[in-house]
Write a protein that binds this DNA or RNA. Sequence first.
RNA 1: AGCGGGAUGGGAUAGCCAGGAGAUUCCGCCGGGCUCAUAACCCGGAGAUCGGUAGUUCAAAUCUACCUCCCGCUACCA
Length: 695
Amino acid sequence: MSDHQATHEAFPTGAPAVVTCGLPYANGDLHIGHLRTYVGGDVYSRALESLGQQTAFVCGSDMHGTPIAVQAIEEGVDPEAFALEWHEQYAETFPKFGVEFDNYGHTHDDTNRELTYDIVERLEAEGYVYEKEIKVAWDPVDEQPLPDRYVEGTCPYCGEHARGDECDEGCGRHLEPGEIEDPVSTISGNPAEYRDRAHKFFEVSELSEYLDGFLDRLEGTSNARNQPRQWLEDGLQDWCITRDLDWGFDYPGEDDLVLYVWVDAPIEYIASTKQYTERVGADEYDWAEAWREDGEIVHVIGRDIIQHHTIFWPAMLEVADYVEPRAVLASGFMTLGGKGFSTSRNRAVWAREYLDEGFHPDLLRYYLATNGGFQQDVDFSWEKFRDRVNNELVGTVGNFIYRSLLFAHRNFEGTPEADVSEEVEARVREAIDDFEAGVNDYSVRAVGNATVELARFGNEYIQREEPWNLVGEDDEAAAQVIRDCVQIAKAVAVLFEPIAPDTSEELWDQLGEDGSVHDVTVDAALEAPPRDFGAPAELYEKIEAERVEELNEKLAARVAEATADDAGTETDESDADGEGDVSDIEPVADDRISFDEFQGLDLRVAEIVAAEPIEDSDNLVKLTVDIGLEERQIVAGIKQLHDVDDLPGTKVVVVANLEKAELFGHESNGMLLAAGEDADLLTTYGDSPVGTKIR
RNA sequence: AGCGGGAUGGGAUAGCCAGGAGAUUCCGCCGGGCUCAUAACCCGGAGAUCGGUAGUUCAAAUCUACCUCCCGCUACCA
């Protein structure tokens, strides 16, 4: 196993760097909350390159796992085709926001397969994998295994209701497959049974000491170190790395077992880097050096997947003898007008939507990158967006550039003949230092602010020196000032490239520069600009107040509609064509049922005798219901929507022959009928006695 | 409920990890100046006892304990 330095050298280092973004899971549309991570990664990798660091920026779509398998089945398509469709969409979307990966692959290809097998085999060879017979939840009716969160039941440790992979409501423990008691399928609702299955385990517990040291070395945002520390203290459990599933990579030598998605997903980071090398050649970028010798690996992720990147992933890398990550940057989440994004409720600003509104991607990049620290939760609103664009991009940066270049063009037809003043040269140096410090602090925000502050200085400077009063009076002095301003403009182009690649390129052209700003390093900020350039054009456009109102109205209307509607439309794929208004009312189901089938439902008039809220649940109420023949306990999700004390005495309609289920640890023997999101209870018009069958 | 994050003038943020002059910067607001520019900049002003309580200390926004509130993630909603 490799030995790593306890401290890291500051960027830029001589080693190749790899910047990765968390793999998007190929099953849904991207919104600007997702984009925050990708823009952050892109800015960071561009900034590294600007410092002269050799950098590969890679990512790919995560194609495997149970959710995709299940969704594909629901849509009646092949999981691979299903995932590929999303993958292609992502691959198309990212560049539209200037997020330009050196390689964007996906987990279901040969490069990843080979590397995954290679690593898994190393884990085995090093003796870190063992087989254990465990009980796997199985749906006996649908004849399918129920991995992970497709089963729920009772936590064996604390007795609370829990999800298949985690005791989310009680003790918080990670649950390995087979541990949960009283399992029930979350797909079909069928009580699950356990079957003995041999599964593979990765002995993470043996690596606690290594991981402890790793976390000491790890750089990046503090949340990425704090969270896993807790895990380590509680003691690590070995990690089951196989699943009973058809979709994914078969476990080597086991054709009825598939590798757990979180094994092959991060390996795509390596695979994608390798594909990059295969494309450009090892002279340009050597993936093997980066991953096997001395690379600087920087992972940019959302904070929900910190554990995987700071425990499982480095453990795998360590055993398989790869380079460990140098830094993990875990972004905070985004809120929209103070509340969380909700894809299922269409409470989101979609990536595509933003572009359709005609906004320049650089504006959003700037907002996402500089609004709050990276690990901070950040709020998006169109008002804030407008304020920052108008004040900072238009007022400060754009205005300075335009006034300077316009003045230079009119009076000097380009860059005046003069040397940069000491003051301005020092100020540009300071901006470069701030930029570099930002990179080494893993703060994309600081990187962006360095430039805006430089432009702000530029405005002060030009204002103070008043070149417009010098022209004709003291042309030499005027030339000096404008020369300085052009230099600052050039520095802005160079230093703002990571944040606003497109407009920086435009500015670069305006300055009469050859080539691309993308290819220069920060040193260029101090080099002389070309002598001649033409009339400048405005870089950024103001956003009018009416525009904001309009956008807010659109959003509010959509959210209201989605909220009023039954959120029962589980997921939100397809139909995102954004055309026309979707009706508030769910369409009638296509499948007609026979009268006999209806007869199979035993619906009864019942009366609520007693009701008490279930502690710790937001929504569940335990009801005692009189159905004439007997009193029954039913659990219903109506706590927030009715005053629980008013419920007793209410006549309701219940499904009497529904199979029993256990919810939140309480038995539910039947189901009461209610309408819509508001859980408007169905009751009787006349006074049919309790127990009456409904037909 | 578990976990994570947060609470600093009207809004947003920095400082807090390595405690010391009633506190950073941006936006907004009020009054005045300047005008090359999608206007920016300058001068002046109003506005915070740094979520609460208790403690450590000569000294706390900064350390400790407890509490409150907010947000997110993960859920049940048969």
